[in-house]
Nucleic acid binder design. Sequence first.
DNA 1: TGACAAGACAGACAAATGTCTGTTTAATGG
DNA 2: CCATTAAACAGACATTTGTCTGTCTTGTCA
Lengths: 205, 205
Amino acid sequence: MARNPQGHTRRDVLAFVRERLAAGAPPTVREVQEHFGFRAVQSARQHLEALVAEGALVKAPGRARGYRLPPGSPGAAGPVRLVPRLGRVQAGALSEAIEDPDGWVPMDGLTGEHELFALTVRGESMSGVGILPGDLVIVRRQDTARDGEIVVALVRDDATVKRLRLRAGRIELHPENPAFAPIVLGPAAEVRILGRVVEIRRRLA
Amino acid sequence: MARNPQGHTRRDVLAFVRERLAAGAPPTVREVQEHFGFRAVQSARQHLEALVAEGALVKAPGRARGYRLPPGSPGAAGPVRLVPRLGRVQAGALSEAIEDPDGWVPMDGLTGEHELFALTVRGESMSGVGILPGDLVIVRRQDTARDGEIVVALVRDDATVKRLRLRAGRIELHPENPAFAPIVLGPAAEVRILGRVVEIRRRLA
DNA sequence: TGACAAGACAGACAAATGTCTGTTTAATGG
DNA sequence: CCATTAAACAGACATTTGTCTGTCTTGTCA
């Protein structure tokens, strides 16, 4: 292989290692070699060690598949998690729904150990805060939430996204759209918090 | 080590492997051995292979650190791409900016072979379509775009998100907020399309 | 009690993988 | 042109790691 001047290959090697780490499968030196078509192991090793020298990677010498991202660097918190995307969520069926997801969406590892799931938004009731029908919300599963947080709640067998308001002795679920009315529920109301919205995604393509 | 009847150890082995995989560091058979204090490699291997047999793990035979979670199981990483998150993008500096990203965000593999990058939205000019300041937009890099698409364009050394309108002989960049005025540019205008917005993400937590 | 199975042990072998030494090729600058 | 340097190459060696064969121990059950 001819020489590749501008350190272009080096950057690609880093990107390759990064992707493999995100997939949870750290590469071997020889896997890097083969991916780039090097005819010598040392070619790959040279790039990898150079990346270690400049601080872009760290490694434990001698260990197999030992290259890692430096602590504190983005993406170093671990591999990407896959969050289950649920279709319809109905009464009590959250656990079942998670067993049989419609698909999986990748999420960075910065969200701690909390269980996550994803739902598609229906209706215009939250359009005032930029949550539109068809948007995907990523939800941290929890039974309770604090005043002002945007939550997914199960109201009469239907999952809905609303802003939670805790008023003296009762729970209110506020839409963010003047065309909709708040849902006001008494203390013994038939409402159940499924989780808190932590991210909103909208696909345009 | 005495025999541990109820398959209790097996479950712990699975938990250990899971933990290591979540940390991005698949364990070797001997690391499992040492963690549980087995005095023989085979003891660890037996548990691991049993977990493979019952479908709780998968592995590529012969490969070092080859145990993985089965595809489709929660926490298993799929074909995920990492998209570079750029800070400021200025004139002609897109390539350079991609060389030195602020971080990486995971994206599912359904976006084809197109080059992608991510930008943080500044300003309220697109709030009418639910794109708010602070949102992350994921952009497919391309030099041209069609009428009506939401694009990232470089106008006078500044990257901006707008809706593209192609009018007889001229290019218009329309905000989606009545408080802002469209940018109207002649045929020889100093505008450059950087790409088309394919996804919008907003982190709440 | 004795057959049986699961778990653990011991030691070895083989393949995968990291590491090293030295050489070659191509671009660059005096 | 020659020296210099980075990148790539070639081949070997050493360590890590996976895999195998056979034995021992302990609990279960007919």
